[in-house]
Write a protein that binds this DNA or RNA. Structure first.
Length: 257
DNA sequence: ATGCCGGGTCCTACCCGA
């Protein structure tokens, strides 16, 4: 079972990239972030000939998540439980597939709109932890994947890539990421690669890719029974070298069947 | 050197990302 995440930075700009990548990598489930289109505009038919069904949770201009899968699935939530009812940002999709609960997230960046924007990020992370706690208590295998917009430790960013007060590395963000781990979730990429740089994002600016000034912000968290089945967890760096790439690359986790 | 690139939109100058 291969489950992947990819922040594509607009599905309209990256439709052919996703099509090619599905063909070559054959994931069972792929979660997308930043599709940047409304739900009805998601190119469902593009992926059907490859045997994939998709469901988007979109909005105009910004954000937006989606799932593309070749295994049967049911979408159970399109909003993160616990957020204010008037929260209109499309950042969450939860499905049931292959006897598992699978969640795809686009966690708020937290750098825009000053401290108010940062507070929104922290509140979102608190709700995510509460949701994870609820689901872990139900004893169904759980996987949470997506763009977390957090570099968990100093090993997860190139030196100097971010200012010390950036929302991706502020202590409050990292504390809340650790809270998820303390609930019993395993950071799949770090379980396979305990040390060193395993970046998933390189800025478009200042030659960040060419200089390997990256960040590790796209993560997959596994409940204990899934962590026991973990075989591989890797970002696909080759995708960043393609023409007109996203600034993020896909990250794939392989679980023993 | 928080705006260097690249996406979006009230179509064109401005907002957002990480």
């Amino acid at each position: 079972m291969k489950i992947a995440t990819w922040n594509v930075n607009s599905i309209r700009q990256r439709e052919a990239h996703v099509h090619r990548w599905l063909q070559s990598c054959q994931p069972d489930v792929l979660f997308l972030q930043e599709i940047k289109c409304e739900t009805a505009a998601f190119p469902v038919k593009t992926f059907e000939p490859l045997g994939y069904r998709s469901q988007a949770v979109g909005q105009k201009s910004y954000n937006g998540v989606a799932v593309i899968a070749r295994v049967p699935f049911t979408v159970t939530h399109t909003e993160l439980p616990g957020l204010p009812a008037d929260d209109a940002q499309a950042r969450y999709i939860e499905i049931q597939a292959a006897g598992m609960t699978l969640i795809g997230i686009y966690l708020p960046n937290g750098n825009s709109r000053g401290e108010e924007g940062f507070a929104y990020k922290l509140a979102w992370m608190d709700c995510l932890a509460a949701r994870a706690k609820t689901l872990l208590a139900q004893d169904i295998p759980l996987l949470i994947t997506g763009d977390f917009n957090v570099c968990p430790t100093e090993e997860d960013l190139a030196p100097g890539a971010l200012s010390s007060n950036d929302a991706l590395i502020r202590p409050e963000s990292r504390q809340r990421f650790r809270t998820l781990l303390w609930l019993g979730l395993t950071d799949a990429v770090r379980a396979i690669h305990p040390h060193g740089t395993v970046y998933t994002f390189w800025d478009y600016q200042a030659g960040a890719w060419q200089r390997d000034l990256g960040l590790r912000i796209d993560h997959t968290l596994l409940s204990p029974t899934l962590a026991e089945k973990l075989i591989a967890a890797d970002p696909d760096r080759e995708e960043r070298a393609q023409p007109q790439p996203s600034d993020h690359v896909p990250v794939t986790v392989t679980l023993d069947d």
